[in-house]
Amino acid sequence: MTVEFLRVSDLHAFYGESHILHGVDFTVNRGEVVTLLGRNGAGRTTTLKALLGLVGSRSGSVMINGREAIALPPHRIAHLGVGYCPEERGIYACLSAEENLLLAPPVGSGGLSLAELYAMFPNLAERREIQGTRLSGGEQQMLAVARILRTGARLLLLDEISEGLAPVIVQALARTIQALRERGYTIVMVEQNFRFAAPLADRFYVMEHGRIVEGFAAAQLPGKMAMLHEFLGV
C-alpha cells in the first residue's frame, strides 16, 4: 500500500533577488528511496533546503506527513519527522564526535540508540572523543548520517553523501542506505554519483533550471538512459 509522505507542489525558492526554484512538483511515498538527479546548479540542493525552510524565502506547498509546512520555521519542520544531512556534512568543529551525535533533539519516536549507532558505525565509537572535524571525510559522513538516525526522523534528506569519498566508503554508505530502506525509512537523496544512486532508488526525478523535468520508477531506468545521458552526461 502506498501512502504519500511528502508532496511538494509549485515550490518556489529565492535567495534575495535571485529566483532559484521555479515551481518544483514531486511526491515521495512512505518507505521509498527517491533520488533527485541533475547537473550542478539545477536546484537539487536548494530543493532540500527549501523543504526545510533554509532558503531566503519560499512559496508553494510542502506537505510532510499530511501537514502543510510552507509557513513553519525550520525547527518546527524538523519536528514533523525530518532529518537533514547537508552537502557540506555540517559537522561542528566546536563539538566532539559524540557531542555532534547527541546534538540534534528527538523529532519522533523510534530513533536508534547510541549503542545501535555505534554498532552500525564502529569507527565512530572508537573516535567518539575526537573533535568532530578531525574525523576523516568518510567518518564525518557516517557521523552526519548517524546524527539524524538518532532523532527518530522518518524522512531523511541526504545531500551528496557519496561526494569525495573513497570507493570502499561509498560501498559502506550504500549498504547503510539499503539497511535504512529495509527499516522503512523514507529517503530523498541528491546525488551526483549515478552509479551510487541507481541501485538504491525506487524512483528518480530529474531537475533542470529549478524545475522537475522528468520522473520515473527504477524499473523504467534502462529506457531512460539516453535521456539521462543528455541531461547529466552519465
Binding site: H75, A78, P86, C94, E99, L103, R147
Partner: peptide, 20 residues
C-alpha cells in the same frame, strides 16, 4: 553543546529541530 553549536552554525542547528 547546543549553545556552542548555535554559535558555529545556527541555521543547521535549527534544521535539526532546535528552537534557535
Amino acid at each position: 553543546a547546543t549553545l556552542r553549536a548555535a554559535t558555529e552554525n545556527a541555521p543547521l542547528l535549527q534544521a535539526f529541530g532546535v528552537n534557535v
